[in-house]
């Protein structure tokens, strides 16, 4: 069995390497809060849990500071792969995807009810017939059919 040494700061926090600063801070704060609750519940393990709290605080501090995070990413490139990833579909995970999916779903829902929702941009459109330019030479040839 190969020892992968798969501990990255991201995996310790349980966030994706692509997590935003806010998500990282949130994860760090949540973990620390839970560890403190645990310290209250399990006084016998207080020293061990305190040590863990310090560790989470430190690595959270690295990832929360953009420059330190960039340096960490550069030094541990392969660990970006060996990090727990979100398995949720993008619509549940990424704000931008959520909006895209929602917009498509609502468009289809309303279309079924006879209401046409204008596409947000040309990226959402499929019908570009209006973009054709009349061309006498071409249109004559087509008209001969």
């Amino acid at each position: 069995m190969i020892d992968l040494g798969v501990e990255s700061h991201y995996s310790r926090l349980g966030v994706s390497p692509n997590a935003t600063g806010a998500q990282i801070r949130q994860a760090r704060d949540d973990l620390i809060r839970r560890l403190r609750e645990q310290q209250r519940r399990e006084p016998a393990r207080r020293a061990e849990l305190r040590e863990r709290e310090r560790e989470i605080n430190n690595l959270g501090g690295v990832l929360a500071a953009p420059a330190r995070r960039a340096q960490y990413d550069k030094d541990h490139e392969h660990l970006r792969f060996f990090t727990v990833r979100s398995a949720a579909a993008p619509m549940f995970d990424e704000a931008q995807d959520r909006i895209d999916v929602l917009h498509r779903v609502i468009s289809a829902h309303l279309r079924d009810k006879g209401v046409c929702l204008r596409p947000l941009s040309d990226l959402d459109r499929d019908d570009f017939s209006a973009d054709s330019t009349p061309n006498d030479l071409l249109d004559d040839l087509i008209g001969q059919n």
Binding site: S11, R12, L13, G14, A27, L31, V84, S86, A87, A88, A89, F92, D93
Partner: peptide, 12 residues
């Protein structure tokens, strides 16, 4: 998404 979120929490 729910299972994964719970699993990530358990991992952390």
């Amino acid at each position: 998404a729910v299972l994964d979120g719970l699993a990530c929490r358990a991992w952390a």
